[in-house]
Protein backbone atom coordinates (compact mmCIF):
# COMPACT_ATOMS: atom_id res chain seq x y z
CA UNK A 1 0.00 0.00 0.00
CA UNK A 2 1.21 3.49 -0.76
CA UNK A 3 0.65 6.57 1.41
CA UNK A 4 -2.47 7.72 -0.44
CA UNK A 5 -4.08 4.33 0.07
CA UNK A 6 -3.04 4.17 3.70
CA UNK A 7 -4.53 7.61 4.32
CA UNK A 8 -7.82 6.64 2.66
CA UNK A 9 -8.04 3.58 4.89
CA UNK A 10 -7.36 5.66 7.98
CA UNK A 11 -10.06 8.15 6.96
CA UNK A 12 -12.83 5.68 6.22
CA UNK A 13 -12.16 2.86 8.64
CA UNK A 14 -9.81 4.34 11.25
CA UNK A 15 -7.43 1.66 10.08
CA UNK A 16 -3.75 2.26 10.62
CA UNK A 17 -2.67 -1.32 10.34
CA UNK A 18 -4.14 -4.70 9.47
CA UNK A 19 -7.40 -4.94 11.41
CA UNK A 20 -8.04 -7.52 14.07
CA UNK A 21 -10.77 -9.98 13.21
CA UNK A 22 -12.46 -10.48 9.87
CA UNK A 23 -11.74 -8.06 7.07
CA UNK A 24 -11.90 -7.52 3.34
CA UNK A 25 -10.10 -4.62 1.71
CA UNK A 26 -11.19 -3.75 -1.80
CA UNK A 27 -8.86 -1.58 -3.89
CA UNK A 28 -9.87 -0.43 -7.36
CA UNK A 29 -12.17 -3.41 -7.69
CA UNK A 30 -9.69 -6.03 -6.52
CA UNK A 31 -9.20 -7.80 -3.22
CA UNK A 32 -6.22 -6.27 -1.45
CA UNK A 33 -6.54 -8.43 1.63
CA UNK A 34 -9.03 -10.72 3.28
CA UNK A 35 -9.33 -12.61 6.51
CA UNK A 36 -12.09 -14.87 7.79
CA UNK A 37 -12.25 -16.01 11.39
CA UNK A 38 -13.67 -19.09 13.06
CA UNK A 39 -17.04 -17.34 13.40
CA UNK A 40 -17.08 -14.94 10.49
CA UNK A 41 -16.66 -16.19 6.96
CA UNK A 42 -16.10 -13.91 3.98
CA UNK A 43 -16.48 -15.32 0.47
CA UNK A 44 -16.59 -13.73 -2.98
CA UNK A 45 -19.84 -13.73 -4.87
CA UNK A 46 -19.75 -15.78 -8.04
CA UNK A 47 -22.54 -14.11 -10.01
CA UNK A 48 -21.66 -10.43 -9.47
CA UNK A 49 -19.05 -8.23 -7.81
CA UNK A 50 -19.12 -8.29 -4.02
CA UNK A 51 -18.87 -10.56 -1.02
CA UNK A 52 -21.01 -12.59 1.36
CA UNK A 53 -20.30 -12.21 5.04
CA UNK A 54 -21.67 -15.02 7.22
CA UNK A 55 -21.63 -14.50 10.95
CA UNK A 56 -22.31 -17.62 13.04
CA UNK A 57 -25.09 -17.53 15.61
CA UNK A 58 -23.87 -16.46 19.04
CA UNK A 59 -20.75 -14.66 17.77
CA UNK A 60 -19.98 -11.95 20.32
CA UNK A 61 -17.57 -9.03 20.49
CA UNK A 62 -16.11 -9.60 17.04
CA UNK A 63 -15.70 -7.11 14.23
CA UNK A 64 -15.72 -7.04 10.44
CA UNK A 65 -13.93 -4.33 8.46
CA UNK A 66 -14.76 -4.00 4.77
CA UNK A 67 -13.29 -0.75 3.46
CA UNK A 68 -13.29 0.16 -0.22
CA UNK A 69 -10.73 2.50 -1.73
CA UNK A 70 -10.48 3.86 -5.24
CA UNK A 71 -7.42 5.71 -6.48
CA UNK A 72 -7.78 5.19 -10.25
CA UNK A 73 -9.37 8.22 -11.86
CA UNK A 74 -12.29 7.18 -14.03
CA UNK A 75 -12.90 3.89 -12.22
CA UNK A 76 -16.54 3.04 -11.52
CA UNK A 77 -18.13 0.03 -9.90
CA UNK A 78 -21.30 -1.40 -8.42
CA UNK A 79 -20.70 -3.81 -5.56
CA UNK A 80 -23.11 -6.11 -3.73
CA UNK A 81 -22.29 -7.11 -0.16
CA UNK A 82 -24.60 -9.35 1.85
CA UNK A 83 -24.35 -9.80 5.60
CA UNK A 84 -25.98 -12.82 7.21
CA UNK A 85 -25.94 -12.17 10.93
CA UNK A 86 -26.69 -15.25 13.03
CA UNK A 87 -29.14 -15.37 15.93
CA UNK A 88 -27.97 -13.91 19.21
CA UNK A 89 -24.71 -12.52 17.82
CA UNK A 90 -23.34 -9.08 18.71
CA UNK A 91 -20.88 -7.60 16.20
CA UNK A 92 -19.35 -4.40 14.90
CA UNK A 93 -19.23 -3.90 11.15
CA UNK A 94 -17.12 -1.08 9.75
CA UNK A 95 -17.56 -0.23 6.09
CA UNK A 96 -16.51 2.88 4.29
CA UNK A 97 -15.42 4.20 0.97
CA UNK A 98 -12.55 6.51 0.18
CA UNK A 99 -11.89 7.92 -3.27
CA UNK A 100 -8.71 9.71 -4.25
CA UNK A 101 -9.22 11.22 -7.67
CA UNK A 102 -6.23 12.96 -9.17
CA UNK A 103 -7.47 12.81 -12.75
CA UNK A 104 -10.28 14.43 -14.71
CA UNK A 105 -12.63 11.45 -15.05
CA UNK A 106 -15.43 10.52 -12.68
CA UNK A 107 -14.66 7.92 -10.02
CA UNK A 108 -17.72 6.23 -8.66
CA UNK A 109 -18.62 3.60 -6.09
CA UNK A 110 -22.16 2.29 -5.80
CA UNK A 111 -22.42 -0.09 -2.87
CA UNK A 112 -25.49 -2.16 -2.20
CA UNK A 113 -25.36 -3.63 1.27
CA UNK A 114 -28.02 -6.01 2.52
CA UNK A 115 -28.22 -7.12 6.13
CA UNK A 116 -30.20 -10.14 7.28
CA UNK A 117 -30.43 -10.12 11.06
CA UNK A 118 -31.67 -13.29 12.73
CA UNK A 119 -33.56 -13.34 15.98
CA UNK A 120 -31.88 -11.36 18.77
CA UNK A 121 -28.86 -10.35 16.65
CA UNK A 122 -27.19 -7.05 17.45
CA UNK A 123 -25.18 -5.07 14.92
CA UNK A 124 -23.43 -1.75 15.07
CA UNK A 125 -22.71 -0.64 11.51
CA UNK A 126 -20.40 2.30 10.88
CA UNK A 127 -20.00 3.72 7.39
CA UNK A 128 -17.74 6.62 6.47
CA UNK A 129 -17.45 8.30 3.11
CA UNK A 130 -14.52 10.44 2.17
CA UNK A 131 -13.14 11.94 -1.01
CA UNK A 132 -9.94 13.77 -1.87
CA UNK A 133 -7.55 14.41 -4.71
CA UNK A 134 -6.32 17.32 -6.76
CA UNK A 135 -7.99 16.22 -10.01
CA UNK A 136 -11.09 17.77 -11.53
CA UNK A 137 -12.79 14.38 -11.87
CA UNK A 138 -15.90 13.94 -9.78
CA UNK A 139 -16.07 11.64 -6.78
CA UNK A 140 -19.43 9.94 -6.55
CA UNK A 141 -20.76 7.50 -3.96
CA UNK A 142 -24.23 6.03 -3.95
CA UNK A 143 -24.81 3.69 -1.03
CA UNK A 144 -27.91 1.56 -0.77
CA UNK A 145 -28.49 -0.11 2.58
CA UNK A 146 -31.19 -2.75 3.00
CA UNK A 147 -31.85 -4.12 6.46
CA UNK A 148 -34.16 -7.05 7.20
CA UNK A 149 -34.64 -7.68 10.90
CA UNK A 150 -36.12 -10.70 12.60
CA UNK A 151 -37.69 -10.65 16.04
CA UNK A 152 -35.89 -8.76 18.85
CA UNK A 153 -32.87 -7.82 16.75
CA UNK A 154 -31.09 -4.49 17.02
CA UNK A 155 -29.17 -2.35 14.56
CA UNK A 156 -27.32 0.87 15.06
CA UNK A 157 -26.43 2.52 11.77
CA UNK A 158 -23.95 5.34 11.87
CA UNK A 159 -23.16 7.06 8.60
CA UNK A 160 -20.69 9.88 8.17
CA UNK A 161 -19.78 11.89 5.09
CA UNK A 162 -17.62 14.82 6.01
CA UNK A 163 -15.43 15.76 3.08
CA UNK A 164 -14.87 15.57 -0.60
CA UNK A 165 -17.81 13.65 -2.04
CA UNK A 166 -19.22 15.56 -5.02
CA UNK A 167 -22.44 13.71 -5.38
CA UNK A 168 -24.21 11.17 -3.25
CA UNK A 169 -27.56 9.47 -3.35
CA UNK A 170 -28.07 7.54 -0.17
CA UNK A 171 -30.93 5.05 0.05
CA UNK A 172 -31.78 3.19 3.22
CA UNK A 173 -34.58 0.72 3.73
CA UNK A 174 -35.35 -1.12 6.96
CA UNK A 175 -37.96 -3.77 7.81
CA UNK A 176 -38.32 -4.31 11.55
CA UNK A 177 -40.23 -7.17 13.16
CA UNK A 178 -41.59 -7.57 16.68
CA UNK A 179 -39.35 -6.14 19.44
CA UNK A 180 -36.73 -4.78 17.03
CA UNK A 181 -34.86 -1.57 17.59
CA UNK A 182 -33.36 0.63 14.87
CA UNK A 183 -31.09 3.56 15.66
CA UNK A 184 -29.88 5.58 12.68
CA UNK A 185 -27.51 8.52 12.98
CA UNK A 186 -26.54 10.39 9.86
CA UNK A 187 -23.82 13.06 9.77
CA UNK A 188 -23.26 14.99 6.60
CA UNK A 189 -21.30 18.01 5.50
CA UNK A 190 -21.28 19.40 1.99
CA UNK A 191 -19.35 22.27 0.47
CA UNK A 192 -18.51 23.75 -2.95
CA UNK A 193 -21.09 22.59 -5.45
CA UNK A 194 -21.71 19.20 -3.86
CA UNK A 195 -25.05 17.47 -3.93
CA UNK A 196 -26.33 15.04 -1.31
CA UNK A 197 -29.65 13.30 -1.35
CA UNK A 198 -30.72 10.95 1.43
CA UNK A 199 -33.83 8.82 1.24
CA UNK A 200 -34.80 6.54 4.04
CA UNK A 201 -37.70 4.30 4.90
CA UNK A 202 -38.10 2.37 8.12
CA UNK A 203 -41.09 0.06 8.29
CA UNK A 204 -42.03 -0.88 11.83
CA UNK A 205 -43.98 -4.06 11.19
CA UNK A 206 -43.95 -5.77 14.56
CA UNK A 207 -45.33 -4.87 17.96
CA UNK A 208 -42.94 -3.07 20.29
CA UNK A 209 -40.56 -2.20 17.50
CA UNK A 210 -38.77 1.13 17.79
CA UNK A 211 -36.90 3.47 15.47
CA UNK A 212 -34.91 6.58 16.20
CA UNK A 213 -33.49 8.51 13.24
CA UNK A 214 -31.24 11.50 13.82
CA UNK A 215 -29.79 13.43 10.95
CA UNK A 216 -27.42 16.34 11.44
CA UNK A 217 -25.90 18.20 8.55
CA UNK A 218 -24.01 21.30 7.56
CA UNK A 219 -24.49 22.75 4.08
CA UNK A 220 -21.86 25.27 3.03
CA UNK A 221 -21.10 27.33 -0.09
CA UNK A 222 -23.42 26.45 -2.98
CA UNK A 223 -24.07 22.86 -1.98
CA UNK A 224 -27.48 21.23 -2.05
CA UNK A 225 -28.95 18.73 0.41
CA UNK A 226 -32.22 16.86 0.39
CA UNK A 227 -33.48 14.63 3.21
CA UNK A 228 -36.49 12.37 3.01
CA UNK A 229 -36.62 10.12 6.07
CA UNK A 230 -39.86 8.20 6.39
CA UNK A 231 -41.07 6.02 9.24
CA UNK A 232 -44.07 3.80 8.74
CA UNK A 233 -45.86 2.35 11.76
CA UNK A 234 -47.70 -0.85 10.93
CA UNK A 235 -48.00 -2.12 14.52
CA UNK A 236 -47.81 -0.99 18.12
CA UNK A 237 -44.51 0.83 17.73
CA UNK A 238 -42.56 3.97 18.47
CA UNK A 239 -40.75 6.10 15.89
CA UNK A 240 -38.88 9.36 16.14
CA UNK A 241 -37.29 11.30 13.27
CA UNK A 242 -35.17 14.37 13.77
CA UNK A 243 -33.38 16.38 11.08
CA UNK A 244 -31.21 19.34 11.98
CA UNK A 245 -29.27 21.40 9.47
CA UNK A 246 -26.94 24.36 9.71
CA UNK A 247 -27.15 26.29 6.47
CA UNK A 248 -24.37 28.62 5.35
CA UNK A 249 -23.35 30.69 2.32
CA UNK A 250 -25.59 30.08 -0.67
CA UNK A 251 -26.50 26.51 0.14
CA UNK A 252 -29.94 25.03 -0.40
CA UNK A 253 -31.48 22.47 1.92
CA UNK A 254 -34.75 20.67 1.86
CA UNK A 255 -35.82 18.48 4.73
CA UNK A 256 -38.94 16.40 4.34
CA UNK A 257 -39.45 14.02 7.24
CA UNK A 258 -42.51 11.85 6.92
CA UNK A 259 -44.35 9.70 9.39
CA UNK A 260 -47.14 7.38 8.40
CA UNK A 261 -49.26 5.26 10.72
CA UNK A 262 -51.32 2.25 9.65
CA UNK A 263 -52.10 1.15 13.17
CA UNK A 264 -53.88 2.99 15.95
CA UNK A 265 -51.14 2.02 18.41
CA UNK A 266 -48.32 3.51 16.37
CA UNK A 267 -46.72 6.46 18.09
CA UNK A 268 -44.64 8.55 15.70
CA UNK A 269 -42.96 11.93 16.02
CA UNK A 270 -40.93 14.04 13.64
CA UNK A 271 -38.96 17.25 14.03
CA UNK A 272 -36.99 19.18 11.45
CA UNK A 273 -35.02 22.38 11.72
CA UNK A 274 -32.86 24.37 9.32
CA UNK A 275 -31.08 27.53 10.37
CA UNK A 276 -27.89 29.49 10.23
CA UNK A 277 -25.43 29.57 13.11
CA UNK A 278 -27.04 31.87 15.66
CA UNK A 279 -25.31 35.23 16.13
CA UNK A 280 -25.17 34.87 19.90
CA UNK A 281 -23.44 31.48 19.59
CA UNK A 282 -20.64 33.10 17.60
CA UNK A 283 -20.47 36.05 19.97
CA UNK A 284 -20.32 33.83 23.04
CA UNK A 285 -17.31 31.95 21.70
CA UNK A 286 -15.68 35.22 20.62
CA UNK A 287 -15.97 36.48 24.21
CA UNK A 288 -13.88 33.42 25.07
CA UNK A 289 -11.13 34.59 22.74
CA UNK A 290 -11.94 32.74 19.49
CA UNK A 291 -12.00 34.56 16.15
CA UNK A 292 -15.25 34.46 14.20
CA UNK A 293 -13.87 31.73 11.92
CA UNK A 294 -12.60 29.64 14.83
CA UNK A 295 -15.97 30.02 16.54
CA UNK A 296 -17.76 28.81 13.40
CA UNK A 297 -15.46 25.80 13.17
CA UNK A 298 -16.03 24.81 16.79
CA UNK A 299 -19.81 25.12 16.44
CA UNK A 300 -19.85 22.98 13.30
CA UNK A 301 -17.53 20.30 14.61
CA UNK A 302 -19.53 20.03 17.83
CA UNK A 303 -22.77 19.85 15.88
CA UNK A 304 -21.49 17.05 13.64
CA UNK A 305 -19.81 15.05 16.38
Amino acid sequence: MNDIEKNLLAQVADLHEIPIGAYNIRRDGEAAGRNSTANIEITSKTDKPGIDIRIKPGTKNESVHIPVIITQSGYGETVYNDFFVGAGSDVLIVAGCGIHNSGCDTSQHDGIHAFYLEEGARVRYVEKHYGEGEGTGERIMNPTTLIYMQKNSYIELETVQIRGVDSTLRQTYVEAAEGCEVVITERLMTHGKQIADSEMEVDLNGDDSRARITSRSVAQDESVQVFRPRVVGNAKCFGHVQCDTIIMGKAKVSSVPEIAANNVEAQLVHEAAIGRIAGDQLLKLMTLGLSKEEAEERIISGFLK
Binding site: D244, A278, Q281, K284, L288, K292, I299, G302, L304
Partner: peptide, 20 residues
Protein backbone atom coordinates in the same frame (compact mmCIF):
# COMPACT_ATOMS: atom_id res chain seq x y z
CA UNK B 1 -12.10 38.70 20.27
CA UNK B 2 -9.44 41.34 20.78
CA UNK B 3 -11.07 42.60 23.96
CA UNK B 4 -11.34 39.01 25.20
CA UNK B 5 -7.63 38.54 24.59
CA UNK B 6 -6.93 41.66 26.66
CA UNK B 7 -8.66 40.03 29.63
CA UNK B 8 -12.25 41.21 29.41
CA UNK B 9 -14.97 38.58 29.86
CA UNK B 10 -18.75 38.66 30.00
CA UNK B 11 -21.28 36.09 31.21
CA UNK B 12 -24.48 36.48 29.21
CA UNK B 13 -27.76 37.28 30.91
CA UNK B 14 -29.34 34.87 28.44
CA UNK B 15 -26.65 32.40 27.41
CA UNK B 16 -26.96 30.65 24.04
CA UNK B 17 -27.33 26.89 23.67
CA UNK B 18 -25.09 24.81 21.42
CA UNK B 19 -26.36 21.57 19.92
CA UNK B 20 -23.66 18.96 20.12
Amino acid sequence: TERAKLGISYGFQQPPRFKG
